[in-house]
Structure formats: structure tokens, C-alpha cells
Design a protein around this nucleic acid. Structure first.
Length: 367
DNA sequence: AAAGCGGGGTG
DNA sequence: CACCCAGCTTT
């Protein structure tokens, strides 16, 4: 009798469930984040959209401001998209804001303002894909759908020494499949957040803290001393560089801004007129800029001194941007290559939603 | 300068 | 499925 009980105890302590170890670690080590206290679907949604391609520390101040201004799904749906973009200004990936705003309106129109609990229905909303469906439904409704973000892919690839490229959809699917069993043995919201938290705090891309990892004794990569070999991913290719010229165009104490088309890159944001140029000599920039401004806004300008040069990296290319002070000579401004053009008093520039580059030009102008 | 994060949309 | 899109942080 005593023998049998002893055997059982040994068995349990030697091979504890990795999910139990993970969740215990999470309960003791998780960060306190605003949407974690009592997860409402709307708060989880906003946080997950902001967290795409953006780290927690970067998005946190944006999140607080956003939730203060739009505390409910209905308040967001009722807002002007320009106000939503203004709050997103500087966070990047502006399509996320446009999609979130549009999707909130669809939830009000089609679902009475309540978040759908059906994965297939949720998935149809703009900006909501496989990952976001699983995140919202698991965290706010405890529905057992595993999320597979970069953190989870990395943790899982190491845990089971998965040698497939984690960037491929098939690998992501395989990882989700392997987590479908485990997630049903505990709170799904806790499981998913614990996996992501472990990836963010312990199982980091470089220099992971294996020594304090709750999954150390379960980890195949660690056992093989090959943690650095996982996850396997394809190298990203080099990005091209372009030169860009723009004009800060004055007329009667005002400055000309153009609003980019609503869809596409930096859609709906305001910018200084100008654009990408070829590899011509720098001495030709003023003439090129003059032509560009004329063809895009119908305004004839005299190009003056260079205001600033800004290097900026986007995800798929880099730019070296040269901003020139210009003076309008003739012509009425028309939105020939944009959705809208407007002459703006310099003091009001801050009220127009711009990308980080736009704000840098404004900052250089203010100096 | 290079690498890492890395979901969604499109074709 | 492959490929394109979109910025900022860390090293």
C-alpha cells in the first residue's frame, strides 16, 4: 500500500505536466497590464491590434490615451476616422487603426454592438485574422483556441525542437494543432497569455533565460543544447532605399498639406507634397520638386533652402527625405494626387494626423 | 547597419 | 501558398 502510493508520487514529481509548470510560472510572474484585470472583449481587441508589430512598452501610452478617449466599442464606432488616426499618430501601421474603426462600426450595425463569439463571424471583420480571433475569444470568453504569434511560435519550436520554418502557414497550423490539446486542460485565456508572456520575458529571441525557465526540463531544444537554432526562419531580403523630396510650401502665412488616399500605405494621413525621385544628382532636387508639386497640386512654387534631411526606415524600404522650404507663386491648390489639399496655419499643424516622418518635418520647421 | 518582431490582405 | 504591406526597438 505504502509502496504503491510512493511509486505514484515519484511518477508525478518526475514528469510534471509542462502546462501546469507554465501556468504556475505565469501566475507568479505576469506583468500587470490594463486589459488583464478583468478582460472585456473590446479592451482585449484594442490591445491585441495595438500589439501587432509593436512591443508592450511602446504601445502602452497609446493604449491608455485611446481607451480614455474611446472607452467603449460604441464610442469608437461613433468617432470620426480622422480622430482615430490622430490618436494612432506615431504608432505606425495605420491600416490597423482604420480597420479597427471600420470593424467597430460593423459590430454595431450587424451585431448590436456586442462582440460575436463565433470564430467564423469574428474572422470576417476587417483587421481580424486567425491570431486576433483566438486572442479575443480565449482571453475574454475562455474559448479554447490557441494563439500562434511570434512568441508562441518560438516557445513551441524550442519546446519540441520543431525544425520547420515558422514563417510558413503550414508550420503555424501544425503548432496550433499541437497546442489544441494542452489549452483545453487549463484556462484558455491564461494558457495563451502565459505562452506569449514566456516568449516575451524568458524565451526571448536572443539570450533566452533558460536557467529560470519553467519549461527547462521539458524543452527539447535545451536538452539538445540547440536553443539558438530555433525557431527556424527564412532570412528577410534586403530593402531598397529611395530618395524623397517634399516641400513646405508657404502662401500668405499658411502651409500646404495633402491628405493621402484612404487606402494603401499611410492611408488617410496628411503629408507635405512631394514624392519619390530617381537617382539624380542632388543639385537637381529643387527642379524635380518643383515639377512634382505642380503636377500633384497644381501649385507653381519657387523652391528655397533645404529645411532638413531625414532618414527613415519602413518595413519594405528606406527613404532619405529632403524637405525644402518653398513659396507658392501661382495656381490654385487641387487634390490631383491626393484626397484633399488644405492651406494650414503653422500653429495648427499639430492637429493634422501625420506619420512619424511628417511629425519630424514639423519639428524641424518649428525650430 | 542589421536583425527581430510578425498579422493581415492579396493574387 | 507565396508574397507584399507596414515602423520601431535592440544589438
Amino acid at each position: 500500500m505504502a509502496d504503491g502510493a510512493g511509486k505514484k508520487d515519484v511518477g508525478v514529481s518526475k514528469r510534471t505536466n509542462w502546462v501546469t509548470d507554465l501556468v504556475e510560472w505565469y501566475d507568479a510572474n505576469r506583468r500587470k497590464l490594463p486589459w488583464r484585470s478583468r478582460p472585456r472583449p473590446y479592451a482585449v481587441w484594442v490591445s491585441e491590434i495595438m500589439l501587432q508589430q509593436t512591443q508592450v512598452d511602446t504601445m502602452l501610452p497609446y493604449y491608455r490615451r485611446f481607451m480614455k478617449r474611446f472607452p467603449s466599442l460604441r464610442s469608437l464606432a461613433a468617432a470620426d476616422v480622422h480622430d482615430v488616426l490622430s490618436l494612432w499618430q506615431g504608432l505606425g501601421y495605420y491600416a490597423r487603426a482604420r480597420n479597427l474603426h471600420r470593424a467597430s462600426q460593423l459590430v454595431v450595425e450587424q451585431h448590436g454592438g456586442r462582440m460575436p463569439r463565433d470564430p467564423a463571424v469574428l474572422r470576417k471583420l476587417p483587421g481580424i485574422g486567425e491570431y486576433t480571433v483566438a486572442a479575443i475569444l480565449s482571453i475574454s470568453f475562455e474559448i479554447p483556441l490557441p494563439v500562434v504569434d511570434g512568441n508562441v511560435a518560438r516557445v513551441t519550436a524550442r519546446l519540441w525542437a520543431i525544425h520547420d520554418d515558422v514563417g510558413r502557414p503550414a508550420t503555424r497550423k501544425a503548432i496550433a494543432d499541437r497546442l489544441t490539446g494542452p489549452i483545453q486542460t487549463v484556462s484558455p485565456g491564461t494558457f495563451n497569455q502565459a505562452m506569449m508572456e514566456l516568449g516575451a520575458l524568458i524565451c526571448r529571441p536572443r539570450d533566452p533565460s533558460c536557467g529560470v525557465c519553467p519549461l527547462m526540463k521539458h524543452c527539447a531544444a535545451k536538452r539538445q543544447k540547440r536553443v539558438g537554432d530555433y525557431p527556424v526562419k527564412k532570412k528577410r531580403k534586403a530593402v531598397p532605399q529611395y530618395d524623397v523630396v517634399v516641400g513646405v510650401i508657404h502662401r500668405r502665412g499658411r502651409i500646404l498639406l495633402a491628405r493621402r488616399p484612404a487606402s494603401g500605405m499611410l492611408g488617410g494621413l496628411w503629408e507635405f507634397p512631394g514624392g519619390k525621385i530617381g537617382s539624380e544628382d542632388a543639385t537637381a532636387y529643387p527642379d524635380t520638386l518643383c515639377e512634382k508639386i505642380l503636377s500633384e497640386t497644381g501649385v507653381e512654387v519657387k523652391v528655397g533652402e533645404r529645411l532638413c534631411t531625414i532618414d527613415h526606415t519602413y518595413s519594405h524600404f528606406k527613404i532619405r527625405l529632403h524637405a525644402f522650404l518653398c513659396r507658392a507663386q501661382a495656381g490654385r491648390a487641387r487634390p490631383l494626387a491626393s484626397d484633399e489639399v488644405r492651406w494650414v496655419p503653422p500653429r495648427e499643424l499639430d492637429a493634422f494626423a501625420m506619420s512619424t516622418v511628417g511629425k519630424k518635418i514639423v519639428a524641424a520647421y518649428d525650430r
